[in-house]
Amino acid sequence: MNMSSSRRWANPALWAVALVLINVLWMNVAKQTAPNEINTADQFERFREVDVAPVFGTQDALPAVFSTTFSSLSLDQANVSYTVRLNNESIVFSWSGVLTDEVPDWEGDLTPGTYVVETVVEEGIQVEQVLLLQPFETVQMTGHVVLSFLLVAIAGLEQGVRAFIAKNTKTTAAPTTTSTAPFKPSAYNEQETLAWDDTDSPWREPVR
């Protein structure tokens, strides 16, 4: 394979690598979670509101994980519970038990809206609640399509610009000029130089 063939294949190969990399990066971004603290050990309220905003204007449900931990330094046993309602009306999920129970994480999809978390505990119990959302999971496939299309469009535009510049460079190249002498020398004829006519002599016989 010669040098020109290697250069011809190098640029498309680089764009192909860029296409793979940008899709891998977007896939990692789409799987990232956004934590929302509901209650902490230092700050607790029985009613907490959390807004689940739509992503890029879509009303698709977002994957979510709701984690709750109850603990106490002064109580050995107590009743604990929490309830999550959408728009403070319909119950989305709830759990109730005692302090020594292991609270399972809730996993599901939450539609955009305002959620109210009601947590019921006795005095002296610390509560830690976190809502993890994956906002870009719902638009992951759309993101792959859009990013791939944009990258292919940029690659095509780059190739077009290269071809346009190369074409203009050839057409605007300065033409080669040849210098001409101001006087054209006459052809030299040896026979004409050697031939001598007597009538051409400047000396003539005297008139008698």
Rank of each mutant, 00 (worst) to 15 (best):
N2P: 09
N2C: 03
R8L: 03
W9Y: 15
A10S: 07
N11G: 01
L14G: 04
W15E: 08
A16Q: 00
L19D: 04
N23H: 09
N23G: 04
V24W: 11
K31D: 15
A34F: 12
T40R: 11
F44D: 09
F44V: 00
V50Y: 08
D51E: 01
V52C: 04
A53E: 11
P54D: 00
P54K: 01
V55S: 05
F56K: 06
F56N: 14
Q59H: 13
A61D: 04
L62F: 01
L62Y: 00
V65C: 07
F66T: 06
S67F: 00
T68F: 02
T69S: 12
F70L: 05
S71K: 10
S72R: 05
L73A: 08
Q77K: 15
A78R: 09
V80W: 12
V80T: 15
S81H: 03
Y82A: 01
I91F: 03
V92K: 13
V92P: 10
L99H: 07
E102K: 15
V103P: 05
V103G: 02
W106T: 08
E107H: 05
D109Y: 06
T111N: 11
T114K: 14
V116T: 15
V117G: 01
E118A: 05
T119C: 00
V120L: 00
E122Y: 06
I125E: 07
Q126K: 12
Q126A: 08
V130T: 15
V130Q: 13
Q134A: 01
P135Q: 05
P135F: 08
T138S: 07
V139L: 09
Q140D: 03
M141V: 06
T142W: 01
H144I: 03
V145D: 03
S148M: 07
F149I: 06
A155I: 00
A155S: 09
G156M: 01
G156F: 08
L157Y: 10
Q159V: 03
G160H: 10
G160N: 13
F164I: 02
A166S: 13
T169E: 14
T172V: 13
A173K: 13
A173D: 10
A174Y: 12
P175C: 02
T176V: 15
T177E: 15
A181C: 15
F183K: 08
P185K: 13
S186T: 11
S186I: 08
A187I: 10
E190Q: 11
Q191H: 09
Q191W: 05
E192P: 02
T193E: 14
L194S: 14
A195Q: 15
D200V: 00
W203Y: 12
W203I: 06
E205I: 02
R208W: 05
R208I: 05
